[in-house]
Simulated assay, not measured.
Amino acid sequence: MIKVNHVSKKYGSFTALHAIDLEIGDGEFIAVLGPSGCGKTTLLKLLAGFMGPTDGTISMDDTVLASTKHVLPPEKRNIGMVFQSFALWPHMTVAEHVKFPLSYHPNKVKEGRKELQARIDKVLKLVGLDALAERYPSELSGGQKQRVALARAIAPLPNLLLMDEPLSALDVELRMEMRKEIQKLHRETKASIVFVTHDQGEALAIADKIVVMNQGRIEQIAPPEVLYTRPETEFVATFVGKCNLVKGQWRGDQFVPTIDSDNVWHDLGVADSFKTSGIYPVRPEQFQLMAADSKGMQGVVSFVQYQGHEIQYTVEVGEATWTIHESVVATRFETGDVVGISLKNAPKQTGTIVSN
């Protein structure tokens, strides 16, 4: 168990992290998600021991790793690190990259040469590089280099594996493949993983739990499905999945959109923060487009993007701009079409509205 307790980090007058609290369970896969400059890499550096906190403490299994008075250096922590740039040594073969941490890590192999080679062989087989053991980095593809970086990090069996946007240098197809590889390694090694990324799709696809950060603060911590379907703040709603924030009035568990007061939407699990602000967050796939003469809100299609499995519409509704995703088998609309808009799976009502 890793505990980050009320940790802050300042650079002069700038505060990069504001009183962060976070727990990472044994074997848990945590994705730290947020835009550039939100503090996610600063948090990773603190966990790695590259620097110390301005306030607060970081502990692992009740041992304090970092405080304002003392910082245990990275080489004395039971961690592995995968960098964005791979950080491979050009003069070392694939096997030598795996051997290096086994000689210097706190979990270094203390047995003889035979046991050391057995560990190297096992790790290379796990990442699919056993046939490339004697190659140098210059002789490898991008995906193979990333596997070397992963192998080097997991070789000493760390309790905590830190990954700083490890897939950002790869092309789209390779990123998809490496997601599977990382999930496989997680199952095999049972290490706790902290995976820093700015890619929401990546975080949703591979993590057990996602930490969403913004301007040095944690906005929400939740499993991927909960984060997507039950965002707690406007930032989470718009950063993860691009919610439409529909303005209106909440009356008990019913919502009346400003754009169409004849419609009443029911509470499908909207957080209290949205109710206080008079907002109903709607995912693009929760809306349905209809012919203009249908009952419901009216809008004008301003942009159409075909995506193979779906069509993404941008629709102007009053002064607001909404994103709506429809199936390719649904009725097709073109730019300039006037359309009706309704909320799926939410009974429409007219008449008496329950008041507080």
Results as ranks from 00 to 15, higher is better:
72 L>H: 02
262 D>P: 02
344 K>F: 14
113 R>Y: 03
60 M>P: 00
243 C>L: 12
100 F>S: 01
189 T>R: 11
37 G>T: 03
261 S>F: 13
111 E>W: 14
16 A>S: 01
19 A>Q: 14
152 R>M: 01
350 T>D: 10
25 G>R: 15
26 D>H: 11
65 L>N: 02
185 L>A: 06
292 A>P: 09
221 I>W: 15
134 E>H: 15
185 L>H: 03
308 G>A: 12
58 I>G: 03
212 V>P: 12
340 G>C: 05
41 T>C: 04
305 Q>V: 08
99 K>S: 02
187 R>M: 07
353 I>T: 05
129 L>C: 12
297 M>I: 07
290 M>R: 03
159 N>P: 04
46 L>P: 10
228 Y>M: 12
91 H>L: 14
88 L>R: 00
101 P>V: 15
322 W>F: 14
11 Y>P: 00
123 V>F: 10
114 K>H: 13
284 P>D: 11
268 L>A: 05
79 I>S: 05
77 R>E: 00
211 V>Y: 12
229 T>M: 10
77 R>Q: 13
350 T>P: 09
355 S>A: 03
178 M>G: 08
183 Q>C: 10
229 T>L: 14
336 G>Q: 05
59 S>K: 09
183 Q>G: 05
277 S>K: 15
264 V>T: 13
15 T>H: 06
226 V>P: 04
156 P>L: 07
306 Y>L: 15
308 G>R: 13
323 T>C: 14
151 A>S: 02
62 D>W: 04
81 M>H: 05
188 E>K: 11
324 I>H: 15
275 K>Y: 12
151 A>V: 04
56 G>V: 02
331 T>I: 09
17 L>K: 11
322 W>V: 02
94 V>E: 06
318 G>S: 05
56 G>D: 00
28 E>Q: 13
16 A>F: 01
43 L>Q: 13
253 D>H: 09
33 L>I: 08
272 D>R: 15
262 D>V: 01
217 R>Q: 11
66 A>E: 11
75 E>W: 09
83 F>C: 07
257 P>K: 02
348 K>V: 07
214 N>G: 04
33 L>W: 04
263 N>T: 08
75 E>G: 04
74 P>W: 04
196 V>W: 09
279 I>D: 00
314 T>Y: 02
55 D>T: 13
288 Q>G: 07
78 N>G: 12
194 V>Q: 02
256 V>Y: 08
153 A>Y: 02
67 S>W: 00
69 K>M: 10
68 T>W: 10
10 K>G: 01
220 Q>V: 01
57 T>K: 14
203 A>P: 10
159 N>C: 13
20 I>M: 15
227 L>F: 07
347 P>K: 04
69 K>I: 08
58 I>Q: 10
112 G>Y: 12
170 L>N: 06
202 E>V: 06
